[in-house]
Nucleic acid binder design. Structure first.
Length: 374
RNA sequence: UGCCUGGAGAAUUCAACA
């Protein structure tokens, strides 16, 4: 049985749903581990509902089963379901706590996440790193730094998170990022790519090139990062060459290329990419939308916006920015009220639309009614 | 005692930085 499970979990690791199913169905017996593997493989493929139905069907559950389902909900961004499940769990361990805290932080509830972190019966490096990583991706460098300063020991992952935090804050912290990287006892491709990203954010293209050359290896992620670095400098030729040099391409790489054209005034090329790329998603649609906005083609931006099947907050913000950039204050206001959710970017966009167009008194009212940041 | 669960890198929106 353990041998069967080993084979099964190998497919789970690879995210191979069909093989995993096949193995599961041909096993003579199932243990709780086999069932857990099935929850896991559904979760990894983004099928949280299927994961739940496996969970409900299984004859025995252990804490790992609960944690797996919690992870499935959290991964799908369903905070409500995550909370409900967490509350109904018979017991919790570090993994459960870490998962629910991450769910809160990922949804932007940093105060709650931090409070839960303090309430946890015990912490470890992973739970701290989890929260710090959320701060980092939200651009809250100081908060991330403070957390790491209070940790006794950092490992490669924690250091990479800190590197990423520096990277997010652009050129203020490039020096610190570089120093941190130089002091790291070990490095992997992820750390190298985070450093490359730090140089990109700082607009230091020579730094990007030399980091890229020094990297012991390259993969799709680091190549895409380099493409973006070129694109940001308007060096489309090199961006394109980087794309062409990729041994394989995914949706992110395609979107990066699309955006390279869109942000540098090559709208027709951007459209060509958009029409010829193997898949499209919200992000690629938003990228083209912003290209239209940049080129002053607000109507086409609007058409694109309307054609997005599942709009995200970024979709709304992008459309808002499209209006804001061209002084369509009326539309900005209307859209702002219509939006299902708002974040800091939303408010900043609104404010800049108002101030750029002389509505200073209204801007100050808006300033006063902004929600406090945690 | 080593069959299953939690943390890190790339694309899209505002501003800031140059």
């Amino acid at each position: 049985l353990q041998d069967w499970n080993r084979v099964l979990s190998e497919h789970v690791r690879n995210g191979n749903l069909h093989e995993a199913k096949r193995v599961f169905d041909s096993m003579p017996h199932h243990s709780v581990v086999s069932w857990n593997c099935m929850i896991s493989v559904y979760a990894r493929n983004g099928h949280s509902l299927q994961a739940r139905s496996v969970f409900q069907q299984m004859p025995w559950k252990n804490l790992i089963s609960w944690n797996l389902l919690l992870g499935a909900f959290s991964r799908s961004g369903d905070l409500e379901a995550s909370i409900a499940l967490f509350d109904s769990m018979p017991l919790w361990d570090l993994v459960s706590w870490t998962a629910i805290i991450k769910a809160f932080a990922a949804a932007g509830y940093f105060c709650i996440a931090k409070r839960l972190l303090d309430q946890m019966p015990e912490h470890d490096l992973i739970s701290w790193t989890t929260v710090a990583a959320q701060f980092a991706s939200d651009g809250q460098v100081d908060a991330a730094k403070a957390m790491f300063d209070s940790m006794p020991q950092l490992d490669l992952i924690a250091l990479t998170v800190m590197l990423d935090a520096y990277a997010q804050s652009g050129h203020h912290h490039l020096q610190r990022a570089q120093e941190l990287f130089d002091r790291m006892p070990e490095r992997n491709l992820l750390a190298w790519t985070a450093l490359l990203h730090a140089h990109t954010q700082a607009g230091n293209i020579q730094g990007c090139e030399s980091v890229f050359e020094d990297m012991p290896e390259a993969d799709l992620v680091s190549l895409t990062a380099m493409l973006v670095a070129y694109a940001q400098q308007g060096r489309i030729r090199e961006a394109r060459d980087t794309f062409d040099a990729m041994p394989e391409r995914n949706l992110i790489a395609w979107t990066a290329l699309l955006s390279a054209y869109a942000q540098n005034g090559h709208l027709e090329l951007a459209e060509d990419i958009f029409n010829s790329m193997p898949q499209r998603n919200v992000v690629s649609m938003e990228a083209l939308l912003s290209g239209y906005a940049l080129g002053g083609r607000v109507e086409e931006a609007k058409v694109m916006f309307n054609s997005i099947p599942e709009r995200t907050l970024v979709s709304w913000n992008s459309m808002l920015a499209a209006y804001a950039q061209h002084g369509h204050v009326k539309e900005v206001k209307a859209l702002f009220y219509e939006m299902p959710a708002r974040d800091q970017v939303t408010w900043d966009t609104l404010l800049s639309a108002l101030t750029q167009n002389g509505h200073l008194e209204l801007a100050s009212v808006v300033l006063g009614s902004m929600p406090e940041r945690c």
